[in-house]
Amino acid sequence: MSSKSLTAEYLKGLWDENPVFRQLLGMCPVLAVTNAVINGIAMGLAASFVLILSSVVVASIKKLIPAQVRIASYIVVIATFVTIADRVMAAYFPPISKALGPYVPLIVVNCIILGRQEAFSSRNSVGRALIDALGMSTGFILALLILSSIREVLGAGTFLGYQVMGPWFKPWIIMILPAGAFITLGILLGIALAIEQRTRRGRA
């Protein structure tokens, strides 16, 4: 059982245990769909939907599941919510569903989601699992938002499709290509680690 205050439980997902910048989890969608802000947000919301509902369900049924079959059960729970997210997006938001392609179904193998079930939801109360999932989701959306904003603004001169750079600006096409995703995320990880090291030194 975690003994943190509920606020701390939520806030840890934003920075100290940020799934992308600090734990290096769920990198595939982070790299793949962040070429435009709208895709990043859609992916963030879809993954959050799955993470939050799976965490609540797993935390509520944890006592009923024998330890030997827990992973299999978690996977079924997660896959169910992923399918729901995928179908609903395809039915009601076809353009976004098309842009995200196979990366929505791939949420099922996103290590953040299974990781949180195993590390947190299966050991904590429903309320705490919910707060934890909300925090991790916010952290994940935040990471997607930062990365996709940098890539869209520099790579296309737009933000959410609106022109933000003047006519003098020549888009850096590399930022929208796969190469730009890797390099931007690499630099962001470095910056995150540098900030962390500085604050830790400050505390010590």
């Binding site: 290509l177 390099i183 990880l189």
Partner: peptide, 20 residues
């Protein structure tokens, strides 16, 4: 390699150059 980039950071940047 600069201290904060060691490990995953520089690996991603290398991957970016490979992708290019």
């Amino acid at each position: 390699v600069p201290e904060p980039l060691k490990g995953a950071g520089i690996a991603l940047i290398v991957a970016g150059i490979m992708a290019l």
